[in-house]
Nucleic acid binder design. Structure first.
Lengths: 287, 287
DNA sequence: GTTCCGCATGAATCGATAG
DNA sequence: ACTATCGATTCATGCGGAA
């Protein structure tokens, strides 16, 4: 097991540093070294069934739940009582029908002590192309929200969006500096001020997120776009909090956390991705 | 049990009539009088879990699966081997978390002999408003596709959409004559011609449907918008086929079937809605 | 005939109050 | 403690009337 720590000076309080920690190893083992009740948000997209090569031992649909449960047990330990776990997952088509391992997983995680608070939908606007005789392209994935308690931290103002038809027009008209300023204010805890500032022109979002997948990265299998962890980080954490991604991949979650001045812990089993994540995180600090 | 039959002259073959049959009663009983293996498509939105004592006895979350299973068993009997069952449903929040009765229902229906082929998402653009400290507005519902076999009839060309409008059903902008013309062509098996006619500008949709609910309908609250059954009727049936809705409500499914020159059977337990459905169906024939 | 504005209307959920 | 009822909250849509 190898750990790399990357530091970034916090622009808002110079004494405080933002830390991105990246760990090489299986999260089942690595998580045992993470302090219990210390993480504010877990957001991850675990390896899909049979998608990656046999790194995790070639998980088959029928074995997925048994493979995941010991890991979610560790996640339950490290999460703060007020924290949230966002799990991005979608069941595969097996033999012409949707497999039930995700539904089974929800049930078993509830039995494990998790609350299944909500299911967000990630609507992928530019989904994977293709044509089949008996089904259309799959344009959505589940974003399952689990909690340890019914009460948890949520900063809804941080993700407010322009109202109705204004949305599309207005969003395009915002300059890049406006966007950055928005993020800064939100990160600084001025979210409420924003909502007051714009008054009736902002609305709370729904549980359907429409985001395009990032196609720019040709090297790696389609991970989620930066916008996705970014949205949940803004919604469920404040500046200085700790974000965990037990299946870090190319480091998207850590990069998003760093951008928003949150500390992060990322765990990745594959050396190739571990190196890539560190590279991407460093690029965020010094582009 | 009372049955009303409404006939409409088929514009394409004068000898043949399109029939809309509406039955008053509990579908559990009424379905036993429907011929086995005769229905091409079942599309329905059953009563959701209600706290209030409703017509079905105020089904509680924990009782929902047991209530539904005997009815889905009857549906399995009447559906053709090549037919499809589309179930519109969404689980409620109970005690701060999503209840699992829908997930349980999927599992039990599989055990009953159904194939769970796909899960479409209905993205409701105008969802119910409201604000809560720990969740956002619910803007989506499940559209579960079940089949008796892995091979079933599907006419993908019938629901092709203009490119760039993926997953958006923009029938509203089409004039009434355009709608009829389109439907006629599709119903006549000219779907492929349409796709050739417009050439590159048409694309297959995805498994995410974006439609608004019909709220300000003068007469009654439409359960789902006309476009919803209409879309699945075009996708899974051809002209002259038989559509079944065991929870007809205000008759939306029958009206959509009639518009598209499909025969229909609608079952409704509540006299008030039974009458309303007949009224709405008649209005479709003679506006 | 357009366009614009005002208004009623929801398959909701939470928290408090009451039996 | 546990269940039933009620008010407050909130926003996209489509209708009707007005300019």
């Amino acid at each position: 097991m190898k750990t790399q720590t990357i530091e970034k000076i916090n622009l808002f309080s110079q004494e405080e540093k933002i830390i991105a920690q990246v760990i090489l190893g299986d999260c089942l083992e690595a998580l045992k070294n993470v302090k219990p009740n210390s993480v504010d948000l877990i957001v991850t997209s675990p390896p899909y069934v049979d998608q990656r090569d046999g790194t995790y031992g070639g998980i088959k649909p029928g074995e997925y739940v048994a493979w995941f449960l010991p890991r979610s047990a560790e996640l339950l330990k490290v999460l703060k009582p007020t924290g949230t776990f966002i799990l991005n997952i979608k069941e595969k088509v097996v033999d012409g029908e949707r497999h039930t391992y995700v539904l089974d997983l929800i049930r078993e995680m509830k039995r494990q002590g998790w609350f299944w608070t909500e299911e967000f939908i990630w609507h992928k606007k530019n989904c994977y192309p293709g044509k089949w005789p008996n089904r259309f392209r799959d344009a959505w994935e589940r974003l399952l929200q689990f909690n340890k308690r019914k009460q948890f931290h949520m900063y809804q103002e941080a993700v407010m969006v322009p109202m109705g038809d204004w949305a599309k027009v207005r969003l395009k008209n915002l300059s890049e500096t406006d966007k950055i300023r928005d993020n800064s204010k939100v990160g600084s805890g001025f979210g409420k001020n924003i909502s007051k500032w714009v008054g009736r022109e902002m609305a709370y979002p729904t549980n359907v997120l429409t985001m395009a997948t990032e196609t720019s990265n040709k090297n790696h299998s389609a991970v989620f776009p930066n916008e996705l962890p970014s949205w949940f980080i803004k919604l469920f954490t404040k500046r200085g909090d700790i974000i965990l991604d037990p299946f870090l991949g190319s480091g998207t979650t850590s990069v998003a956390a760093l951008e928003l001045d949150r500390n992060s812990i990322g765990i990745e089993i594959k050396k190739e991705y571990f190196d890539l994540a560190i590279q991407n995180i460093n690029r965020q600090i010094r582009p």
